[in-house]
């Protein structure tokens, strides 16, 4: 090859081959592949191939529960002020990656880039909204009880423990954040099954989480078939609560069966929105109420005598 010739003569002189990302699970602060070795194809809203995502398994879900249980004590024991700052930091880091989030949301949900950008903004703002709740929850939901006797009596909310969640199937990022943030803000740890067909924004979020101050194990994200993995989480004896929001539009999944399986250790259950046996994915745009924060809280009441 002559030194004057600029490069290969295949007509791609100025075309660079993109370095694609391998999309993996997020468990215990690390990015493992599925222990099953399986992957599945993720396609955009037009059916074009995007990536091979990890096809999470029962074992992956169990590993995630172990990681979440291990992280619970320290996260629940952190000060509310600290948790608020950690959640706010997630918003900060998302802001720096918004172009990537917007591109992934656009291709997953068939939105324009401008439309996707708006959704990303809402998702970032939702972290900020929930971050601010961390040190308000106890005052709003707890308080002193005027008992008829010489006792100091106070009720305060506490996190219930390890919470499993089925992330919304359609709204891949804002929906995910809207489900996840209210679980962890009060000190619970989370195992989330991401949107089955639109998991890529969730994995990018896990990369944000890994470089944020959220301790490993507090948030665990599993990609894969919702109907395959969800029953194992619903029946898991070391999961304290399960959010079935993502049952709406999930392939081959009956939320009643998941609720049934969850009764063996009396999990707290957040049923999907909708009437009767149906399930609909809510509109995630409006400012939330406290339903999601409350569903994974316990009220603890402490008594002590008063005396001189």
């Amino acid at each position: 090859m002559s030194p004057t010739e600029p490069g290969p003569k295949n007509g791609a002189a100025d075309q660079r081959i993109e370095v694609r990302k391998t999309y993996k699970l997020y468990i215990g602060g690390a990015f493992p592949r599925s222990e099953s070795g399986r992957t599945y194809e993720i396609r955009d809203s037009h059916g074009k191939f995007l990536a091979n995502a990890a096809l999470g398994s029962r074992k992956d879900a169990r590993d995630a529960v172990v990681a979440a249980r291990g992280a619970f004590g320290k996260w629940a024991g952190a000060t509310a002020y600290n948790r608020g700052q950690v959640l706010y930091r997630v918003a900060e880091l998302m802001e720096g990656r918004r172009a990537q989030f917007a591109a992934e949301v656009a291709s997953a949900q068939g939105l324009t880039l401008a439309g996707a950008d708006k959704v990303v903004s809402q998702a970032i703002d939702r972290w900020v909204w929930y971050a601010g709740w961390s040190d308000k929850i106890a005052q709003v939901l707890g308080g002193v009880n005027p008992v008829a006797g010489p006792y100091f009596n106070i009720s305060s909310p506490e996190p219930t423990g390890v919470v499993a969640a089925l992330a919304p199937q359609r709204c891949s990022l804002l929906g995910l954040v809207s489900v996840l943030a209210p679980i962890v803000v009060s000190g619970n740890t989370a195992v989330v099954l991401t949107s089955e067909h639109r998991p890529l924004p969730a994995i990018t979020l896990s990369e944000v989480l890994a470089t944020s101050d959220v301790p490993g194990g507090v948030i665990n994200l599993i990609t894969g078939r919702t109907a395959e993995v969800a029953p194992w989480l619903a029946a898991h004896q070391d999961v304290n609560a399960i959010d079935l929001t993502g049952a709406a539009d999930a392939d081959a999944l009956v939320w009643a069966e998941l609720e049934g399986a969850s009764t063996e250790n009396l999990k707290r259950v957040l049923r999907p929105a909708g009437d009767g046996v149906g399930a609909v994915e809510p509109d995630w745009s409006p400012t939330p109420d406290l339903t999601r924060i409350k569903f994974c809280l316990e009220t603890k009441t402490v008594w002590h005598p008063k005396g001189g």
């Binding site: 008992v147 008829a148 006792y151 603890k300 009441t301 008594w303 005598p305």
Partner: peptide, 18 residues
């Protein structure tokens, strides 16, 4: 536990969540 009694036990009141 949902109710913790310190230096007392088995106290109940309508105003106190149980």
């Amino acid at each position: 536990a949902g109710v913790v009694w310190a230096n007392t036990f088995n106290r109940f009141d309508p105003a106190s969540p149980f």
